[in-house]
Amino acid sequence: MFWIVNARRLKQYLIIFTAALFAIGIAWAERDNISIFTSGKNEPSAIYKVDTREKKLALTFDISWGEERTGPILDVLEKKGVKKATFFLSSPWSESHPELVKRIKDMGYEIGSHGHKHVNYSSLTDEEIQTQIGRAHEILKGLTGTAPSLIRTPNGDFDKRVLRIADKMGYTVVQWDTDSKDWMNPGTEQIVKNVVEKAHPGDIVLMHASDSCKQTHLALPAIIDQLQGKGYELVTVSELMAGTKVNTKEVQ
């Protein structure tokens, strides 16, 4: 009888101990911004960063409207000799600015999709999500001659359905781990600080080349100089993902 009671207590202690370890793991993961939310095995997920010790990161630029900011940003990248970056282009903007799309392509930068209409995909039906991704796909493929395989959804919004549909259509959803917050126009120095202080190996950095972001091209030279000064190699998202463990966050 004594042994049975002790065995029961031991089982209770083990359950409590396991739960405590799990809680600690959650806290640790959240501290390091590591995904702990899973929606089941073999489910598609969004890419936020990659786990690597190599000092490589990807600068990414979203473009959904405007014609005044993209050129100056490309000028900075060219002047600084940055050969690799990833641009996520919305298809209506691309149709309206084929010369800028061509320049991005000719400079050798990776082009991903930023969808068609700038709406939250999680608010759409499955058919509407397919239509938005598919229409952007055909337009970007037609303009660049290459079918994109990466997509950053408008506003970074997605749910399980978006991930599954994008995956079936041959796309990987790309998010970011460092937000420059250039969309807030907080000042050049703050944008530089937002990127450089948080940048880490395997990082995906969010910036914008739309007209609403008025300070990105002013902050970009210092961002590039300081990141390279710390020994970082600037690569595309696809290169960052190749041969490394991808760090993802899956939705409930």
Rank of each mutant, 00 (worst) to 15 (best):
G170D: 13
K141M: 13
R135F: 06
T153K: 08
M169E: 13
Q132E: 15
L124A: 08
Q130P: 00
Q132W: 02
T131R: 12
A147K: 12
L150N: 09
T125N: 07
R152V: 04
I151L: 10
L124H: 03
P148V: 01
L163P: 02
K168I: 03
A136W: 01
I129A: 02
K141P: 07
T131L: 07
R164G: 10
P154K: 04
G134S: 14
K141Q: 13
Q130I: 06
P148L: 03
T125Q: 05
G170F: 06
L143F: 02
E138W: 00
V162K: 10
D126C: 00
T146R: 08
G134M: 09
I165K: 03
R152C: 01
T146H: 06
R152H: 01
L143W: 01
Q130G: 11
L150E: 10
P154Q: 03
T131S: 14
T131M: 09
V174C: 09
K168P: 01
T172I: 10
I133E: 01
V162G: 08
T144G: 15
E127N: 12
F158M: 10
Y171G: 14
L143V: 09
L150P: 06
K168H: 11
T144M: 09
I151C: 02
A136M: 09
T125C: 04
I151H: 05
V174E: 07
G142D: 15
D126G: 10
A147Q: 11
D126E: 14
F158K: 06
T144Y: 07
G170P: 03
E127H: 03
G145C: 06
T144N: 10
M169Q: 06
I139W: 00
R135K: 11
E127W: 03
Y171W: 13
I165T: 07
L143I: 09
I133W: 00
F158Q: 06
Q132S: 13
M169W: 00
G170C: 10
T131F: 01
L163Q: 07
I129Y: 02
T153S: 15
G145H: 05
R135G: 02
F158S: 13
V162L: 09
D167Y: 01
K160M: 08
M169N: 02
S149C: 04
Y171M: 15
T144S: 11
